[in-house]
Amino acid sequence: MNLFNFEFNFTGLNIRNIFRRKQKLGKNNAYILFIDDETFPVVENLVKAGWSARRIKDIKNIQDEEVSRAHVIFVDYKGVGRNISEQDQGIGVIKAIKAAYGDSKRVVLYSGYARFDLSMDMRKADNQLPKNSDTYEFISMIESELKKIK
């Protein structure tokens, strides 16, 4: 085998993309999604603070437009994921998103149960946050998760 004889397809290669630095994600360009069957004022607080954030009650599948454009996704523990996993609910949604998108999206389990039911399954999420957290805690979590996106 000749190691110096390899094929390289230059079609569609954009030289600018090779040298372009990874865009820093922050308030101006990140999209934050909450998957929760109940409303929490933190979403409107984030919007007022200048973030692009939205809550949806549930998702049909992980290719949903809202999911694919999101950078950080907060998933409730119960009452969501009907179309993904009847058994696992929120954990099912987290597993499916992580399996499909890996570290290109960060998933945070946010729940009222977060402090006392830390089963192995719950650790499938990248991080966890209790539902009764301050908006400040949410912003801190979002900022630190955005830095971990690969």
Binding site: E38, F40, P41, V42, N45, G112, P130, K131, N132, S133, D134, T135
Partner: peptide, 9 residues
């Protein structure tokens, strides 16, 4: 916790 979180936020 849910109610307290909603009130606080």
């Amino acid at each position: 916790k849910k109610l307290q979180g909603q009130l606080k936020q």
